[in-house]
Amino acid sequence: MGDQEPQPKQHRSYGIQTPGTKGVRGKKRYAMVVDLRKCIGCMSCSIACKTEYGLPLGVWRTWVKVMEKGSYPNTKRIFMPRLCNHCDYPVCVRNCPTQATYKHEEGFVLQRYNRCIGCRTCMVACPYNARHLLPEKRTDGNLPRMVVDKCTFCIHRVKKGVLPSCVQACVGGARIFGDMNDPESEVSRLLSTETVAVLKPELGTSPAVYYIGADWEIMDEPHSYTNRSVQNREEFNDFKRNHKGDAFADIVEGESLMAEVGKNWIGYLKTIPHKAKETLAAFKIFLFD
């Protein structure tokens, strides 16, 4: 009895809404390690991702946050690539009312556009800003519009044995992707030999994106608000001024709050005609086709 190998625990099938698979024997669990010591802030990952998915302006599946530290002449610039954390306990999956977003048993948190109603509950639930609403106007009208989109860890590539687009494009080799349940993988080796950190560990979401050499200030949420450069603040204000609509609640800093609330209300009303057009088209197809 005592000499027998412990058998892998048999897990109940949960369909597509699977429980976390970190450390579960016999299961794959894809994860990413970002070695910030190697990141040079070239933004190749963001561009590769944008190209891979034809993402429109104003939305990102992955981006690189930049911070400058120190006083002249002793200054340094630090980077933090950001993406969906593909959590083991994703709040977005739990809160989605139509099961449009789900947890794949190999760790991917995925989105089904055909089920998404664009209620943005998942965007409110996600603590990492990893989700965005695809805009109404896109160059190719056949691409998804007005539904929520997110990083997929490039599952379509991974399933064919190819690395995610951002990982392949990373010139410094800062992004490492693999199966963290496989003790032979590079990701496993790094997780067992290096000190790693995750974003917002206190929320208990069990993220699967790990950072080596992370700076606490760039990981800190209030710090991102209180310590912004003037240029960053102005750029964000311009972005908000030019993206009214789609019922978002953006407040331009320095403007009257109630006036901004009013503008958001007008933005909402402006979206109704094109939504009405789409609704009529859907009914027409339903009734006559």
């Binding site: 981006w63 950001r82 800003n129 965005h132 960053n232 750029e235 964000f236 993206h243 978002f248 958001n264």
Partner: peptide, 23 residues
């Protein structure tokens, strides 16, 4: 303590707005 400022970050929307507050 050394100074630190965020010089670039992606811009994100506040997902639920006026409509939800009126509702």
């Amino acid at each position: 303590m050394e100074e630190s400022i965020v010089t670039y970050n992606a811009f994100h929307h506040v997902a639920w707005g006026t409509t939800i507050s009126v509702y």
